[in-house]
Design a protein around this nucleic acid. Structure first.
Length: 428
RNA sequence: GGAGGGAUGGCAGAGCGGACGAAUGCACGGCUCUUGAAAAGCCGCGAGACCUUGGUCUCCGUGGGUUCGAAUCCCACUCCCUCCGCCA
């Protein structure tokens, strides 16, 4: 969440910044009102509480001095004040909760560097690799689900039998390819990022810290009986890993990488991209994550985008980098770069990575701070997250891009050491 | 799943109805001593909110309760440790 004091002290600036992402200015006014109300109620309650505390102290003193009668009188007085205090406390709690709820739904302030725009159509293509799309053969113009079925490496029907549509089942070299991709990526980041294998079912609090709850309840899988949520991305457990902690500035930046399955209900996208692997409920992803100071964050953002890009060039996939406009940013993000690969078989750009700088928005929700060098009060860290990379769509792009005239699929050399012998998937 | 023990500041650890936001040690910051360092000594040092050179309030796992007053008593929950059972 953003700092309520910013809203209080400079509502015009907040209105302007959030206006860029389509937040109604009236919402800011409402927030200012809620804040005023909450502070007034809290002040009332605290005054009464101070009276109760003072009277209680006097009761103790009177009792110690053996003045039983005076003690009783003071206790009675305190009891009376305590009753109004109870009412004031209820009002204060209600007002604070109303403010908190409003803040939880309010998105992060976009970075001034994020381009203007209201939606996906306004995103800016920062760069493409290669500069021009190469010429693709007819063999490469076959959708991956057809290739997958033909080679016996992808079985959407059996996946659906087990779990419903959009739950892919990979077999043979198809499954092996996923495992290779995960190992390849983790090894690639091992020079600077500590590998984590977090739990993939988490508490409500953990989902709230990243901003995935309460606003996006419909997007997440929930296990009712145990009140646990299936993570939509490793960003969720990695953010809460240090929840409530105070770090040392000298330890920053902290970098982590994790390979996990990701679960998404895709409720808002029902009926879209339903074929093959374009949009699935469960997929594997290697995530990059960093906790940093405000000063370190911009360089880290670039580093993480660079790492994701490097994987793509090594895999030999054509891609482009999108600088997301203010209106297309996710709730927690101040700046985001999306990476899209070109999949020749379906003739589409597929989002395979999203690298975001969340400033202190998530850290404030998760209460993660660091103590500056030389002491002083703790300050909120900045969090950055990015996929490097999400495999289902990469799998699709690799199968389509690598397809030969004879129907076999060539796999990129960087993966060969991870494939256990074969370097291609033979036609059947 | 059953039985028992525990959760206190960055860490360790005392406190078990009022003088406790909390002893002590370590860590950390400043100073003294020293050519420098170490050691020693002195001082400081939890977090947050709201009004303001000071004050008020909150926080001792979480949520309720008892009381004029709760870190301290009661209830529930969560997590950790030990033992038993089950288990990949």
């Amino acid at each position: 969440m953003i700092d309520i004091r910013l809203v209080r002290d400079d509502p015009a600036a907040v209105r302007a910044a959030l206006g860029r992402r389509g937040v109604d200015g009236a919402e800011i006014d409402r927030l200012v009102g809620l804040d005023d109300a909450a502070r007034a109620e809290i002040g009332r309650r605290d005054d009464l509480r101070a009276q109760v505390n003072a009277l209680s102290r006097q009761v103790g003193e009177a009792r110690r001095d053996g003045e039983t009668q005076r003690a009783e009188a003071l206790a009675a007085e305190s009891r009376a004040v305590g009753e109004s205090e109870g009412q004031a406390a209820e009002a204060a709690d209600a007002a604070s909760e109303a403010l908190r709820q409003a803040l939880l739904y309010l998105p992060n302030l976009p970075s001034p560097d994020a381009p203007d725009g209201g939606g996906p159509e306004d995103n800016v293509v920062a760069r493409s690799w290669p500069a021009e799309l190469p010429a693709y053969t007819d063999a490469q113009r076959v959708p991956h689900w057809e290739v997958g079925t033909e080679l016996g490496i992808l079985d959407m029907e059996r996946g659906a039998k087990l779990s419903g549509s959009m739950f892919p089942l990979y077999r043979g070299m198809g499954a092996r390819l996923l495992r290779a991709l995960t190992s390849f990526a983790l090894d690639h980041h091992a020079d600077a990022f500590e590998e984590i294998r977090p739990p993939t079912m988490v508490r409500t609090e953990t989902m709230v810290s990243t901003g995935h709850l309460p606003k996006f309840v419909d997007e997440a899988y929930h296990l009712e009986r145990d009140d646990l949520w299936a993570i939509p991305t490793a960003e969720v457990p990695l953010t809460s890993m240090l929840r409530g902690d105070i770090l040392a500035e000298a330890d920053l930046p902290l970098r982590f990488t994790a390979a996990t399955p990701c679960f998404r209900r895709e409720a808002g996208a029902a009926g879209r991209d339903t074929r093959g692997l374009l949009r699935v409920h469960e997929f594997d992803k290697v995530e990059l994550f960093a906790y940093a100071t405000a000063d370190q964050a911009p360089a880290l953002l670039e580093e993480m985008v660079g790492r994701a890009e490097r994987l793509l060039t090594e895999l030999g996939l054509a891609y482009r980098v999108l600088d997301l406009c203010a209106g297309d940013l996710g709730l927690s993000a101040a700046r985001t770069f999306d990476l899209e690969v070109y999949a020749p078989g379906v003739d589409q750009w597929l989002e395979v990575s999203s690298v975001s700088w969340c400033t202190d928005y998530q850290a404030r929700r998760a209460n993660i701070r660091y103590r500056p060098d030389g002491g002083g009060s703790p300050v909120f860290v900045h969090t950055l997250n990015g996929s490097a990379l999400a495999w289902a769509r990469i799998w699709a792009a690799l199968i389509e891009t690598g397809r030969q005239d004879d129907g076999s699929v060539e796999l990129p050399p960087v993966l060969h050491p991870y494939l256990g012998g074969p370097t291609r998937i033979d036609a059947r």
